[in-house]
């Protein structure tokens, strides 16, 4: 038996994903966004999270998936990776599960249109598959700068 991991499960399209509970600050309903000019398209803006201004990205657009409509189920998962705090818009956030490290396998090249470098692995549970994110890469600032330069 490996170490236990607690994951927040959320969905994008038909896939289910997981992010470690200790990286998640809070989960919020959709709220008004203030657009920030001249940022990559997936940066949707900033929100007022109880007095703190937090940038929000659309996870679908971050991975180049087709942008979806925001619904009542849409959630903003506020995550923190080192000094970076970011909200991620997801289709829905469902529950929290315990996963054994042993159940996690290396990711295939592409899952649901997302490249392997953004993924930490795939957790095989009894009746479902969870894709684990590599937050470090997802929130990589250097990549934003590159994208910005491409955009210009």
């Amino acid at each position: 038996m490996g170490a236990e991991l607690k994951l927040v499960v959320f969905s994008l399209g038909n896939e289910e994903y997981g992010v470690e509970v200790d990286k998640v600050q809070t989960i919020e309903r959709m709220m008004p966004l203030t657009r920030v000019p001249k940022t990559p398209v997936f940066v949707k803006g900033v929100i007022n999270l109880r007095g703190v201004v937090v940038p929000v990205i659309d996870l679908r657009e971050r991975f180049g998936l087709t942008a979806g409509e925001y619904t009542d189920n849409t959630r903003i998962i506020i995550v923190r990776q080192q000094s970076i705090e970011v909200g991620m818009i997801v289709d829905s956030a469902n529950d929290v599960v315990d996963v054994d490290e042993d159940q996690i396998e290396a990711p295939p090249e592409v899952v649901g249109g997302i490249r392997a470098k953004y993924l930490r692995g795939i957790a095989k549970l009894e009746d479902r598959l969870l894709v684990l994110f590599n937050l470090q890469e997802v929130l990589n600032k250097d990549e934003i700068i590159q994208l910005e330069q491409l955009g210009e």
């Binding site: 203030t34 920030v36 000019p37 001249k38 940022t39 940066v43 900033v46 201004v53 937090v54 940038p55 000094s83 970076i84 705090e85 970011v86 929130l139 600032k141 934003i144 700068i145």
Partner: peptide, 15 residues
């Protein structure tokens, strides 16, 4: 501040 994620913004100094 807008935090560490959004830095080096054009013509925006904060919020």
């Amino acid at each position: 501040t807008l935090g560490d994620y959004l830095n080096r913004l054009f013509a925006i100094s904060g919020a």
